[in-house]
Design a protein around this nucleic acid. Sequence first.
DNA 1: TATAGGTAGGCGAACGTTCGCCGTGATGAG
DNA 2: CTCATCACGGCGAACGTTCGCCTACCTATA
Lengths: 338, 338
Amino acid sequence: MSRATLKDVAAKAGVSYQTVSKVLNRRGQVSPETERRIRHAALELNYRPNVVAQNLRQKSSRLIGYAWGAGGTTTWRPVNNRFLHRVVYTCEAQGYFITFFTAKDESFADLKAYEDLYGRRQVDGFILENTTENDPRIHYLLAEKIPFVAFGRIEEDLDFCWVDVDGYYGIYLVVDYLLQRGHRRIALISWQRGATTGHDRERGYYCRLQEAGIVPDPAWIYRGVNEIETGAQGVVHLWSLPVAQRPTAVVCVSDQIAVGAMHAAMAEGLEVGKDIAITGYDDVNMAQFLHPPLTTVRQPIDEAGELVANMLLEQVNGTMTVPQQVLLKPELVIRGSA
Amino acid sequence: MSRATLKDVAAKAGVSYQTVSKVLNRRGQVSPETERRIRHAALELNYRPNVVAQNLRQKSSRLIGYAWGAGGTTTWRPVNNRFLHRVVYTCEAQGYFITFFTAKDESFADLKAYEDLYGRRQVDGFILENTTENDPRIHYLLAEKIPFVAFGRIEEDLDFCWVDVDGYYGIYLVVDYLLQRGHRRIALISWQRGATTGHDRERGYYCRLQEAGIVPDPAWIYRGVNEIETGAQGVVHLWSLPVAQRPTAVVCVSDQIAVGAMHAAMAEGLEVGKDIAITGYDDVNMAQFLHPPLTTVRQPIDEAGELVANMLLEQVNGTMTVPQQVLLKPELVIRGSA
DNA sequence: TATAGGTAGGCGAACGTTCGCCGTGATGAG
DNA sequence: CTCATCACGGCGAACGTTCGCCTACCTATA
């Protein structure tokens, strides 16, 4: 049951309920004997503080909002389990919990959910994921001085808290490796323009090629949503090119896309890793068990989750003075597909 | 901002703050003119009720706890995104939110997290996932009369709320299909004993074989954790058997395991779908893009999520009189791997 | 005119905490 | 003997709601 309140404990211990509060919160001074009586009574009644009451008093909610993009019943984006788990774990250790909500609108133009949750004091701050170029949420939260941390930078040079993994560097490593292996016609399957993360990764592609004195054929670039299908469509497109124009390697901006690309390549009768090189990005669990195992880029995702959580909590409890930014380095994982 | 309280609105509208509350909650009677003034003031001050205060008053938290099994930093189990999203979506529509917490112990023997969260009135109920045989959480929550719904039955015949997908029927369909295709030596890669879900699926395997007059060789059963590796190890084990004893088909209790099995089969030089049949269970996104595409079982997971959420909310707001149980039917999805 | 009933809105109380101020009695220093 | 100090713990107030009771007025009916 555990319905006992401070007053119940106080009655049992023969003191005022405020004194019980003091003892349990280790403030104020009480004689050892009184303390013993109080603690004993609390234990016996199986007392637990009512968090809701505590929160009202302290004007907080000890809850962090985490948006689940696209709230329709049909379309939704899977969250990164690993990242999220680390965030939850880190917050919990400091007495905070994560609560999910679904943003109503794919484009995030609808900021109502954020305004509502914070306005009603239902959450103390937000964690943003999947930030887009010129993300309106960031402008809004910044203007309203609402605590938040973004996992993923945006183009604009605004001074807010973020953690990101250097996608430029990741793809740079990939292309560098492919060049070393002798590839010269290297294609890229990426997301639609507007995804900041995508833009960043693309830069790595262009830069490394430029350094090698290679001007990529525009037909080598294929764009789509972050679905397996996109990879498949990309390869079909690339193989529709005249033979001499076809790439020998395909760089994908996600493992998801790479899986589709591998699938389509096999359907074209190609042997991946031999007739064609394909690389991914993320190193999802399944990557090493694909056939052939996927060469990909691994992000320090645990570290990112922990950083994001800690940065947010610092903001929330006011120990952060100026916004912080952290850029983490990913690493190349070489397997059979390239 | 939005720091306006009822009192602020009341002052601006020239009424008592309780009257404002009445108007905003559509109780009590006020003249149209007063109502107009109040609503206008509320709008102008951008008033939002403080959820924490509401919760204190109404003795609830409008939060549902969702455990993330195994809270260590290293080991954790991915949650089913699709199920969870539907749960979040359904709850949100009724003004409830989902809060994550990490259970400290793999075995769930540690019930402290549940006791704490509910004892402190931090959540109004729980959603249980990944139930185990004789799950101590269920006994505990039942004994304490704490509202909860389990996604997954348990063996014991206790009267509590659950939603489950008939794993017996799912695997029955799989084996039935394999028999139709002429297979007679059919292996099973399953989880460790103790997982209720696994037990259930196994029954489908044994029953359908028995109906066909086949007694499965004990060496055809391989067990492990729900990881890709398990599938690989299983196939390696099966191929270590004398040729005449080797199965021609391998039924896996999850797509995860099936991926590993396919991988190992290919490594053995087998052509999946021809030299050996392999089936999965879950129909994860990637299943149709594997090579060959995976024959698997699809669960009505959206429906399950919605049911679970609604059953819990009914319990929480007291509209449920007797515990309900729902068993959903899965369907077979035939692709190239078998 | 007296009574009843309905309407509009005020008001006290409570939900369970935390915080800071205050009083009392004992102790020690001058 | 007096006064400051300190340990102990009581107490009022506040956080922002909701709920139910109460009052004052207005109108219709007998």
